[in-house]
Design a protein around this nucleic acid. Sequence first.
DNA 1: TCTGGGGTCCTAGGACCC
DNA 2: TCTGGGGTCCTAGGACCC
Length: 358
Amino acid sequence: MSETPWVLHVDLDQFIAAVEVLRRPELVGLPVIVGGRGDPAERAVVSTASYEARRYGVGSGMPLRLAARKVPDAVLLPVDAPAYTAASEQVMASLRSLGVVVEVLGWDEAFLGIESDDPEAFARRAQAAVLKSTRLHCSVGIGDNKVRAKIATDFGKPRGVFRLTADNWFEVMGELPTIELWGVGSKVSQRLAKHGIDTVRQLADTDEPVLVGEFGPRMGLWYGQLGRGMGSTVVDDSPWIARGHSRETTYQRNLTTPEEVAAAVRELASQAFDDTVADGRSVFRVTLKVRYAPFFTSTKAKKLAAPTTDRGDVIAAALALAGRLDPEREVRLLGVRAEMVMPDGGDPAERTPIRGRL
DNA sequence: TCTGGGGTCCTAGGACCC
DNA sequence: TCTGGGGTCCTAGGACCC
């Protein structure tokens, strides 16, 4: 007599802010904002705000300068990535100790594959395990697949548990705007709206040819399934292997001359190369990303090289791309990405696409 | 108010070949 | 003089996520 399989999605509550408050107990109950170097005079954005700060309308991705203006007495803290990595590893270890498959999604998120006839009880056990091990609180979504588990978590926040399945999908999600779906952002929701598709239920009821015509054969079908809450049930704990590494920097002062840009490209390409070498891999493609200053314009360029482990090759490729940037515009952000040959020599494109796994 | 840094995957369209 | 249909590879760019 086997028990029912479930997907659980565990999401830490205000993770980064919570980690900071743990080591500074005097900050409990205060509006805490973590971002950049913690200096609102610099170009930076909010990584995480505590619930006290969110009440003022501060959220992730907001310019730090604006956040500081909205909450004048906020405690501003710099991002301390090593501390969050360490806390994250503790969280994941506590989840693995439950004896289930754990698929890590990021610092503060994981899917669990479980078999249970009382998933709510299991979710509470997971919360207790994380709290005991790390003193951090989390919310848990329960689903009959990954899509529903992931979306369910939002309804459980904070510190709660919520179940979303085929039985209550439309009741819970049907009248919500499509942008509430995981994988639908502002651009796609606007393109859907052009076809009169505003809600999740309308998306689910849309004929496939309409979606395929707008988004192509792969994404079109996928958005249709998303509207019905359909998705993969496979929780995969195999170790994550990066396809590439990138380094990018927003300059406090815009870069104006080709010489400045070239120097910046050299530096970033060198760092991305170091990250690749640290993985024991070779580079087969280099990408240069630029954000020009006057307007929010983003551009990327790519260049193929034979797979290489030579720093000079990678820098030369990046510089060649830099030679094609618009010389009339100021540069405020530059990024260089090195894509890597897989350890077995295979092409990264051959790997299972994440879309197919959702 | 003025938009980080690290990633992943998909699509359109041109070049080229048979 | 104008042109098919199918295939692959590559580049550029877009979109989304945490």
